[in-house]
Simulated assay, not measured.
Amino acid sequence: MTMRSFIHIACLASAGVLLIACNSTSVRVGGAPEASVKNCVGAAARELKVPAASVVVDSGTTPRDGIYTINLKVGPQGRSVVCTTDENSAVLGVVYKRPQ
């Protein structure tokens, strides 16, 4: 094996490690873990009796440690919905937001 081949293999291995590290972190919306976001989309679809494809993640916040609030837009009108989850990504509630 030549030095050039060794460097090439080392670079590929490093890139693979970086890619794995980037993919292993959760996608977060306003601090909420990916599991919370997915669970909220599913719960909103079930609770509001709409297709999951019509539920769009808008934003999220972490008002307290371990509690996540995820704002969703539902349906063609984009009605605002709030979903809350606990630290284990269990959905605590899904409610329509009052219009402002």
Rank of each mutant, 00 (worst) to 15 (best):
V95L: 14
S14D: 09
D65M: 11
A32Y: 03
V55T: 09
S36K: 06
A44T: 00
R46M: 15
T25D: 05
H8F: 13
N39K: 04
F6T: 10
I7M: 08
L18H: 11
A10I: 05
L72C: 00
E47P: 10
I7S: 06
I9Y: 11
K49G: 01
Q100S: 12
V27T: 06
N88R: 14
N23V: 11
A43G: 10
A44F: 00
G31D: 04
L18V: 11
L12P: 07
L18D: 06
R4C: 13
T61W: 15
A90C: 12
C83F: 05
I67R: 05
Q100K: 15
V95N: 12
R28Y: 06
G78L: 08
T62K: 01
Q100A: 13
G75M: 07
V82K: 09
V50P: 00
M1S: 11
Q100T: 15
D86Q: 02
G66H: 06
G93N: 05
R46G: 10
P76V: 14
E47W: 07
S26G: 10
E47H: 08
A35I: 03
D86R: 01
T62S: 07
A35L: 07
R79S: 07
G60M: 02
V56Q: 06
S89R: 08
K97M: 15
L12K: 05
A32S: 04
Y96F: 14
N71H: 10
G16F: 14
D86A: 03
L18S: 01
V94N: 01
S54P: 11
F6R: 12
I70F: 07
G30E: 04
A13Q: 02
Y96S: 10
V81G: 01
Q100H: 12
H8Y: 13
A52D: 11
S80R: 03
P63C: 04
S89P: 03
I7H: 00
E47D: 14
V81K: 02
L18Q: 09
S80V: 03
V57G: 05
D65T: 09
A15L: 15
D58P: 08
E47A: 07
S54F: 09
N71M: 12
R64A: 12
G42L: 15
A13H: 02
V56E: 06
L19M: 10
G93E: 10
V41Y: 02
A13D: 03
I20W: 08
A35F: 06
N88A: 13
N23L: 11
A45S: 04
C11V: 14
A43I: 08
M3A: 15
D65S: 08
P63T: 04
M3F: 15
Q100G: 10
G42P: 13
A43Q: 05
P99E: 14
A52G: 00
